[in-house]
Design a protein around this nucleic acid. Structure first.
Lengths: 229, 229
DNA sequence: CGAATAGTGTCTGTTAGACATTATCGA
DNA sequence: TCGATAATGTCTAACAGACACTATTCG
């Protein structure tokens, strides 16, 4: 039943690394150093290495370290894109991931790597535009009901800073009292006792950090049709 | 830079077909007709065919038609599972999908195909147990705030029937008035004028159907941190 | 008519957003 | 003391859940 031999399916990963810079969501793009699309700005990505990688996720972690110099960010599988036409080399399949990091966790911008606002993307090769759009849509959706955006903050942050991050991601202003009530109900933060953010001409703000159990999990609000509690 | 030749990564799809039978979520399992695990109950799945399939989704549709005799159900990508150990043949990657169908859309049970309650699964080969669990978790989560469970109903259904479906999926009873308010706000249904469900010793119920624009999209409730409207 | 379930009106406690007030800093 | 922003108290409108009531069928 085996027909004529075919070249194998090309198996890759692509990573949408998102950060907040200049008050806007930005995606990390790297200049490609090989064909196809040599020299073109694209998502960091690469082949899955059978010999090195224990999973597609491992490949994504490796790609992020190699091409962006980023270690252990918040990383989640997004979606798998596939088909005969998305890569000029042939039938291909790419497991896409998205990563969230604070701007301070990125190495100083080096040659061939840069950030671009997700709302004003340059032309991208493959179906990378579609992948970025899917990632942004996912992040905005999950930010509406979860603690996801904390991963765009530094390790220590104030509630006004966190609110500004949510507002930048969601693209709309949030009521301060409601926001604080919601954050409180998510039970994801702990105040750092005695630590305040001084330095400006006003009352200093309490510093918080993410509680341990939420460093790689999300806290979600109850919502929708289900009875609460 | 190309090292020693490796056998290619095994690219497959697996489908978690869920339906509601005997008031419980059940998954369709098919007896495998080839190695590995020949003769064992497993998720319907198979290789992605470079020559036939325009995408992994196409492969999932094909597998569902071939192994379960189901055409055009609600089908959504779940997650991609990968690694060197999940398949005894070697490093493999499976794009998992989940499908929701009403029991009436399944062909009469034939040899080697059957339904099993998701809460009392038999031992499954590969990492199929993990895949089923991920699908069930996803379906339960999305059912809390979207119209997803309507795809477990027949084309025409009453509101009490729909509520029973939600309750079976979520595993808890729902307030009738709240449920109807929520369904109304989702704006996903249209009453079938003059069509009532007769036959029992009580007031007949209005029949509804899913509005066209939601046949392959979901309606979601507002929720969480974002300001409404 | 009585049992049974569909569908709706209404009351009440909870919650979200608006606004005001107090707190605490630097200059 | 003043300007600025953090943090919190309070009022009100919207909403969710509970309950009761009406509607409509079969037997």
């Amino acid at each position: 039943m085996a027909g004529a031999p075919h070249p194998p399916i090309i198996c890759t990963v692509d990573v949408v690394l998102l950060t907040l810079a200049d008050g806007a969501l930005q995606v990390l793009l790297a200049r490609r150093d090989r064909e196809p699309f040599n020299g073109v700005l694209a998502l960091p990505g690469g082949y899955i290495h059978r010999e090195d990688d224990q999973s597609a996720r491992d490949a994504a972690v490796r790609v992020l370290a190699d091409k962006a110099g980023v270690a252990s960010p918040y990383l989640e599988q997004l979606e798998t894109f596939s088909g005969p036409a998305r890569d000029p080399r042939g039938w291909s399949l790419s497991v896409a991931y998205y990563a969230l990091v604070p701007l301070t966790a990125l190495p100083t911008p080096h040659a061939g790597v840069g950030l671009k606002p997700v709302d004003r993307l340059p032309s991208l090769p493959f179906d990378h535009r579609q992948i970025v759009d899917a990632a942004v849509q996912r992040v905005r959706a999950k930010s509406q009901y979860s603690s996801l955006p904390v991963h765009l903050c530094d390790e220590r942050f104030t509630l006004p800073q966190l609110q500004a991050v949510y507002e930048a991601v969601l693209g709309e202003s949030i009521n301060k009292v409601s926001f604080r009530r919601k954050v409180d109900s998510l039970a994801m933060l702990e105040a750092i006792e005695g630590e305040l953010e001084h330095g400006r001409a006003n009352r200093p703000a309490q510093l918080y950090r993410l509680r341990r159990e939420f460093r790689h999990a999300l806290s979600m609000v109850d919502r929708g049709l289900n009875p609460r509690d």
